[in-house]
């Protein structure tokens, strides 16, 4: 089933304004943090090559505008996405509340074939900051209610957990792509299992 073809994974990062989408993307791709990013207008994107299970994969990470009024203009960017990364700011409760609407809007606009099984990953960013408003438990509960979405607590500033999170994102995206490519998927259970395990990984890895 493994092919030697070059694989391109399209990943979309969504979430409210100033939760750190651009920073996360840059931290992952360029391994540096800057407080000099402009607010993203429209969309921006970076690519990175990763190796997953001996396969070289190009990840195309799309960073989007976070302000509410741009939410419905995402159609163009969502097209053909393999994974959707939802980000919220653990110190700002409102950014957590709007996760539902980001997720719904994505599902409507991207209209994936199997909306229930489309891979999402949730990142609670800015864990280096105090005071926290959203506990890991609350975030995980939300994830459970949405078909066990993997959850990671990250800090784009300190590079905490970013690598792990994006690796999981890449794996999920790849799994999704295989699923859509191979219409007769032989191992549906395997994928489900890995999904269910990951939330724990995320929580364990997070030291704060």
């Amino acid at each position: 089933m493994a092919s030697n073809k070059k694989v391109l994974l399209k990943v979309i990062i969504l979430g409210d304004s100033s939760v750190g989408k651009t920073s996360l993307m840059n931290q992952y791709v360029n391994r540096k943090f800057s407080n000099q990013y402009k607010a993203t207008i429209g969309a921006d994107f970076l690519t990175k090559e990763v190796t997953i299970d001996d396969r070289t994969v190009t990840m195309q990470i799309w960073d989007t505008a976070g302000q509410e009024r741009f939410q419905s203009l995402g159609v163009a960017f969502y097209r053909g996405a393999d994974c959707c990364v939802l980000v919220f700011d653990v110190t700002a409760p409102n950014t957590f509340k709007s996760l539902d609407s980001w997720r719904d809007e994505f599902l409507i606009q991207a209209a994936p074939r199997e909306p229930d099984n489309f891979p999402f990953v949730l990142l609670g960013n800015k864990v280096d900051l105090e005071p926290r408003a959203i506990s890991a438990k609350r975030a995980q509960q939300w994830c459970q209610s949405k078909n066990s979405i993997p959850y990671f607590e990250t800090s784009a500033k300190e590079g905490l957990n970013v690598e792990q999170a994006f690796l999981a994102i890449a794996k999920n995206a790849l799994a999704q792509q295989n699923q859509t490519v191979d219409l007769y998927n032989e191992f549906p259970d395997q994928i489900k299992l890995s999904n269910a395990q990951r939330p724990n990984n995320g929580a364990d890895a997070c030291g704060c």
């Binding site: 402009k38 207008i41 429209g42 969309a43 505008a65 741009f70 203009l73 159609v75 163009a76 960017f77 097209r79």
Partner: peptide
């Protein structure tokens, strides 16, 4: 490519400034 929507928002909204 579905490009028109992607480029024009940032071009128009910031008059190329960004």
């Amino acid at each position: 490519l579905g490009m028109m929507n992607m480029i024009s928002l940032s071009w128009f909204l910031t008059i190329f400034l960004c």
